[in-house]
C-alpha cells in the first residue's frame, strides 16, 4: 500500500501539468461561452445551455490513456510492481474525480445563484444532470469521470498487452457484437421494449447506478490485464 501511495504521489510530480490541462481547457471553454452569450445579449427568456463542460471529461479521458501508455513504462522502469502502479493510479484518478466533481458542483451552485453568470448561461448545471438529492447530484458529476477514465485505462491496457493486433481485435469484436445485437433487436422487434426499459429506469440508475457498475467491471478486468502486461 505504501508503494501505491508513492505511485499516486509520483503522478503529481509535474502537478502543474496534471491540473493545468483539464482546468485550463475548461476555463477557456467557459470564458468563450460567457463572452459569446454576453455579446449576443438576448432577452431574459433565452437560457443558453452548452456542452462546454464536456471538455474537462475529455481531457481526463485522454489523461487516463496516457497514464497507461506513458506513466506505466516509467513506473515499471523505476522498479514498482504492476499492482502498486495500478492501485496508485486508480487512487490518484479517483481522487481527482472526487475533487473535480466537488468543484464542478460548487460552480453549478454559483451558476444558479448568479442567474447563469448574469446572462442566463447554463454551463455547469446541465438539465440532465439535475436531480434533487445532493449526493446523487455530486455523483452525477463524479461517476462520468470514473467511467471514462476506466474505459481509457482498459483500452490503453489492451494496447499495452496485445499491441495493435489487440486493439484491432477488440474493435472487431465490439463492432461485431454491437452490430449483431442491433440486427437481432431489429429482427425480433425488441426496440420498443429496450426503449421502454430505459424509460422505466429511475433517474439515479441511469445517472449513477449503471455507469458505476460498468466502471467496477472495467476496473476488475483492467487489473487482470495489467498483471501480465509488459512496459
Amino acid at each position: 500500500m505504501n508503494r501505491a501511495l508513492t505511485v499516486a504521489r509520483l503522478q503529481f510530480v509535474a502537478w502543474r501539468v496534471v491540473l493545468g490541462w483539464p482546468w485550463g481547457i475548461l476555463a477557456l471553454s467557459f470564458l468563450i461561452n460567457l463572452a459569446l452569450f454576453t455579446a449576443m445579449g438576448e432577452n431574459d427568456d433565452f437560457e443558453p445551455t452548452t456542452g462546454g463542460l464536456l471538455s474537462i471529461y475529455i481531457v481526463m479521458f485522454i489523461a487516463s490513456i496516457s497514464a497507461i501508455t506513458q506513466d506505466f513504462p516509467f513506473a515499471i522502469g523505476l522498479g514498482l510492481s504492476r499492482r502498486s502502479f495500478y492501485l496508485g493510479n486508480v487512487l490518484q484518478f479517483a481522487a481527482q474525480a472526487v475533487v473535480y466533481a466537488a468543484v464542478l458542483y460548487l460552480l453549478a451552485i454559483v451558476e444558479e445563484a448568479t442567474d447563469g453568470w448574469g446572462v442566463n448561461l447554463r454551463f455547469f448545471g446541465l438539465p440532465f444532470l439535475l436531480v434533487e438529492n445532493p449526493v446523487l447530484r455530486f455523483l452525477g458529476f463524479a461517476i462520468p469521470f470514473l467511467l471514462l477514465g476506466f474505459i481509457g485505462i482498459a483500452i490503453a491496457l489492451v494496447f499495452k498487452r496485445w499491441r495493435v493486433n489487440g486493439l484491432l481485435t477488440l474493435g472487431t469484436v465490439a463492432l461485431g457484437g454491437i452490430g449483431g445485437l442491433a440486427v437481432l433487436a431489429t429482427w425480433r422487434g425488441w426496440w420498443s421494449a429496450i426503449g421502454g426499459w430505459f424509460v422505466d429506469q429511475p433517474n439515479w440508475a441511469l445517472l449513477v447506478g449503471w455507469p458505476a457498475l460498468v466502471t467496477v467491471v472495467l476496473a476488475a478486468v483492467s487489473y487482470l490485464v495489467i498483471r501480465r502486461a509488459t512496459p
Binding site: 508503494r3 508513492t6 504521489r9 509520483l10 510530480v13 509535474a14 501539468v17 496516457s66 506513458q70 506513466d71 513504462p73 516509467f74 522502469g77 523505476l78 522498479g79 514498482l80 510492481s81
Partner: peptide, 30 residues
C-alpha cells in the same frame, strides 16, 4: 523490486516531465 535499479537505454519518460521531475520521482521511489 525496491532494491533493484534498472537503467536501460530504451527507457521512456512521460511527456510533460522535466529533468527535475524525473529526479524527484526517482527520489520518491528508491
Amino acid at each position: 523490486l525496491s532494491r533493484i535499479s534498472f537503467i536501460k537505454e530504451s527507457q521512456t519518460y512521460p511527456s510533460g516531465l522535466r529533468v527535475m521531475h524525473v529526479l524527484r520521482a526517482a527520489g520518491l521511489v528508491y
